[in-house]
Amino acid sequence: MSDSVIANFDVNGRSREVLVKPYHTLLEILREDLGLTGTKHGCELGECGACTVLVDGLPQLSCLLLPHQVEGKEITTIEGLAEGDELHPLQEAFVEAGAVQCGYCTPSMLLTAKALLEGDPSPSRQEIAEALSGNLCRCTGYEAITRAVELAATRMDT
């Protein structure tokens, strides 16, 4: 283990100190070292968006992030979205609006939408589409996802 390093960061409000390989991406660390398999992967090359997590609140691709780049940062994964048993309004809206088909892109869509609504509580359809444009979905044609984000935005705004 001579080439391992210690990484410190915060995942879903819990601070973590992990012994990692410097060449293992955050995706591998989350899924394999920390057992947080809610973060998905579809290409591992930055091309599909499935591995999106929030780093200090911004959507970034965990398949491209090296442990040193997230040193001391706050990471939010899909497991950190609900408050206990209470779903985040976006999660509620995704369930209701049928934004979940196979569900494989869902974690990435939810986290990206969360960051969007934090910066802009009432985005237009076009702005939603722009914000989600790095996250591919093969099932929904994005329509129900957009509707779900709109629905959540209206509910969160009031």
Partner: peptide, 26 residues
């Protein structure tokens, strides 16, 4: 390496094979 968004995929595809990465984005 800065953000690594160009470099990391290329390293995975072994288009470059450095043994040391020198981070600068911090």
């Amino acid at each position: 390496v800065a953000g690594g968004t160009d470099l990391v995929p290329k390293l995975k595809r072994r288009q470059m094979e450095p043994s040391i990465l020198v981070g600068i984005s911090h």
